[in-house]
């Protein structure tokens, strides 16, 4: 692989930022997030992972889909498609895998999510390989790995005072086109990481549907939505029409889509006020099944990338790896 020093990478990043929207891990008041850095020096290079995954750039917490302008009988509907050309720098392997899951469900399956697809096609992912696994990381157990480049356009592997550049896609090749590397053809030794644990089989998951685990593990759940909102593959949303500021007699309504989560109480509420998933146990089971079972059956991909964010962020320590362990304990003989 070709070698590039950190200094050369920084000047490359500066040139990227001139023509494209550059997102990178940056601290704001002590919280690490993918943001547009004011200065290239603000970019954080050594980190475990940002609080939010790279998902929030491609599938933002809230986005305006349409603006509806009404002036008397005259109604205009304007689509707000975001056409920014972006590069996300410092993407972890688990987040890139998350994008692959989102692609399967939002682009490769009908109906295509036009908004996601546009952003995704216009966003290049430049990865930074993890040198070690974090305390709550388990990517190796769900088919990934800390230096796995799947789903990325370029992967950078730390080497001495710089990085080895693994070009993964043609978009990645384009990004580094014309860059003079500091050294060339350096041997890259792929590191071997062992899985942390074995996952329950799809059959065992199916037969655990009525397990007592769901009640006992969900009892302390606060029904907030942190787990879903920090998850690189959670993609549920709600669409609302909200009044915007009127302008000279023109009434404005905005169609907003925003994240939603099956752990919230109202998520499954239907007409007439009925709620088939009223119990916390049913909601926790749905979320865990969505990660380990439903998406796998629908698309052939596991919707958990082992990033461990839900474990780190849960205020009451609900832990997907602990639940996996309990499911395995319940395996018959």
């Amino acid at each position: 692989m070709d070698f590039i020093s950190k200094k050369s990478l920084e000047s490359w990043l500066a040139s990227v930022a001139e023509t494209k929207k550059l997102y990178a891990p940056v601290y704001t008041d002590g919280v690490l997030l993918y943001q547009q850095p004011n200065e290239i020096e603000d970019i954080v290079w050594d980190f475990s992972r940002p609080v939010q995954s790279a998902k929030e750039i491609i599938f933002p917490q809230s986005e305006k889909m349409l603006t509806i302008e009404k002036n008397g009988q005259n109604i205009q509907i304007i689509e707000n498609l975001n056409n920014d050309i972006s590069v996300i720098f410092g993407v972890r392997s688990c987040d890139a895998r998350g994008c692959l899951v989102l692609d399967k469900l939002l682009v490769e399956a009908e109906p295509v999510d036009h908004y996601y697809k546009t952003r995704r096609e216009n966003t290049a992912l430049v990865g930074l390989a993890c040198e070690e696994m974090g305390d709550t990381c388990f990517c190796t157990s769900v088919g990934g790995g800390p230096d796995n480049s799947e789903g990325l356009d370029v992967m950078l592997h730390r080497h001495q005072d710089g990085y080895l550049v693994e070009i993964v896609s043609s978009a990645g090749e384009e990004l580094f086109n014309g860059i003079e590397f500091d050294r060339q053809d350096i041997a890259f030794n792929e590191r071997r990481f062992e899985p942390e644990f074995v996952l329950p089989s799809q059959d065992l998951l199916k037969s655990s549907f009525d397990s007592e685990i769901w009640r006992s593990e969900s009892e302390r759940c606060l029904s907030c939505r942190i787990c879903a909102y920090v998850c690189p593959t959670c993609r549920c949303f709600d669409v609302r029409d909200e009044p915007g500021a009127s302008n000279n007699g023109t009434e404005i309504v905005e169609r907003i889509r925003g994240w939603d989560s099956c752990s919230g109480e109202a998520y499954r509420r239907i007409a007439g006020g009925h709620n088939p998933r009223e119990a916390k146990a049913d909601r926790l089971r749905n979320r865990i099944y969505c990660k380990l079972h439903y998406t796998q059956e629908q698309s052939g991909m596991m919707a958990c990338t082992g990033c461990g964010r839900c474990i780190d962020s849960c205020p009451v320590n609900i832990d997907i790896t602990e639940i996996i362990g309990l499911i395995l304990e319940g395996e018959p003989g």
């Binding site: 704001t28 997030l33 929030e56 917490q61 907030c224 879903a228 919230g264 205020p315």
Partner: peptide
């Protein structure tokens, strides 16, 4: 406002 700007409306504050 700069504090609230980070909010992702997960409603954890309310739920806790």
């Amino acid at each position: 406002l700069s504090e609230f700007d980070r909010c992702i409306r997960c409603y954890a504050c309310r739920q806790a």
